[in-house]
Every structure is written in C-alpha cells, then in structure tokens.
C-alpha cells in the first residue's frame, strides 16, 4: 500500500540544511499495523505528516496504492482524505467553533454521507467513546484527554482504510489507552484497516505487527512482533 523511497525532509536553517528525515525506505502493506517509536525530535510526526500527505518530502518518492503522491494535486489529495485516510493529530486540532457533535459530523459531511446515517454513526461512536453527555460542548470545555478521544473518534468515524495516529493515547490513562488500542486492533484484524501509529509506549507499540525505530531522522532498526497483527 505504501512505498517510501529515500524520503528526505530538511529545513533550511540559515545557510545549512537541518535534516529531520534522511534516507527513509519503507514498505507497508495493506492490513499492517505499524508503530513508529523514537526519542523526541527524531522526526516521527514529520514522517507521519508526510505519510498523511499533509507535508511533502524535500527529496525521495512516496508511492501510495501504486500512485506517485508527488503527482497529486489538491483535488486528488482531498479525495484521499475523503476515501482513505483518517488522521489523529498529536495536538488534537479540534475545530474550536464546533461542538463535539459537529466536529464528528464534519468529515461525514465532506464525504456526503446522508444525514440519517450521519446521525446514527455519530450516536454510535459517541456511545463507544462514552462521550454522549459531552456532545454539545465546545473543545475548550473539554479536558485534554477528552479532546484526544474526540480527535480519535473523528478519525475513525469516516471508516478510513488507513489510520494515521500521532501519539493517540498520549494524554490518556492506561485503561483508557488500552481500550483505544483494542479498538485499533479490532479494526485492523476484523476490517483490515491499515494503521500506522506514533507512540512512546512500548506496550502500545506491541499491539502492532512491526515497530520502526527512528533516531535522528533515520530508521535505526525494524522489529517484528511475533504475536502481533497479521500481515
């Protein structure tokens, strides 16, 4: 599904280039559950943004479902978001002016899901995340953890084929985190959803079938998990 060839990303700082990502080569097949780990500042978020087509590599090629992403125009990217990708942001990025309910509704509206189905899907996911009572609150009326839950729910609600999650459980208590990981695992196992997550927690990482260890912008090593997800 995903093919990365010599991906590089640098920022021009003064005269020198600061490399954030270097020589990233990776292949991720449909139905995999991959975790990305590494110290702060190692480029995890950057990589995920590139995978999510939010950012562009300064060098190298990114092939998605056999198509070159560098050739995508804005319209094609929009199609990707509508059809394939669900993104969980590290900083949640809920829309401040919208209630929880509306935040969840937004991707469905862009996908042109009919309103009856929208209602039932939102009701369903609110129920699943125990947020029914909060549906009319605005993001700034929620705790950090609650905001994170809404961010995850929003990524899942469109039933994407690829979930990109940047530290999805960073602000959650471990039982709650576990619940989310279970949801991810179910999606991966039962619906064949491809998942790529960034995480600091070894435990969470083990839900996947593979761990990519990043350091200073390079893939330091790759670890396969035996009893992880199927590939």
């Amino acid at each position: 599904m995903i093919e990365l060839k010599n991906i590089e990303r640098y920022y021009p700082t003064g005269a020198v280039k600061t490399y954030v990502l270097r020589y990233i080569n990776a292949h991720i097949a449909e139905g995999e559950f991959v975790s990305i780990m590494g110290p702060s500042g190692s480029g995890k978020s950057t990589l995920l943004h590139i995978l999510g087509m939010l950012d562009e590599p300064t060098d190298g090629e990114y092939w998605f479902l056999g198509e070159g992403v560098h050739k995508f125009n804005e319209r094609r990217r929009t199609e990707m978001y509508r059809e394939y990708i669900g993104f969980v942001f590290q900083a949640y990025h809920l829309i401040d002016d919208l209630t929880v309910y509306e935040n969840l509704e937004t991707p469905l509206m862009y996908k042109k899901v009919p309103s009856g189905e929208r209602k039932s899907r939102i009701a369903d996911i609110l129920d699943r995340f125990n947020m029914v009572a909060k549906k009319d609150l605005f993001p700034n009326q929620l705790s950090g953890g609650q905001q994170q839950l809404v961010g995850i729910a929003r990524a899942l609600i469109g039933r994407p084929k690829l979930i990109l999650a940047d530290e999805p459980t960073g602000n959650l208590q471990s039982p709650q985190a576990k619940e989310i990981m279970e949801i991810f695992r179910t999606l991966n196992k039962e619906d064949g959803v491809t998942i790529i997550q960034v995480t600091h927690s070894e435990e969470n990482a083990r839900y996947g079938n593979r761990i990519l260890h990043l350091k200073d912008g390079r893939v330091e090593n790759e670890e396969l998990i035996k009893n992880g997800a199927s590939s």
């Binding site: 319209r75 929009t78 978001y81 942001f89 809920l94 829309i95 937004t106 862009y110 469109g158």
Partner: peptide, 19 residues
Amino acid sequence: STRAREVGVRKALGSDRGT
C-alpha cells in the same frame, strides 16, 4: 491565524477548496 488551523484540519478531514 486562528482560522488557519481550522482550514488545515478541515482539509485533512476531506474538505475541498471550493467548500
């Protein structure tokens, strides 16, 4: 500045420019 983030999020959620 406040709305830029909103625009970014909406695009990542599948909004096109026309919308």
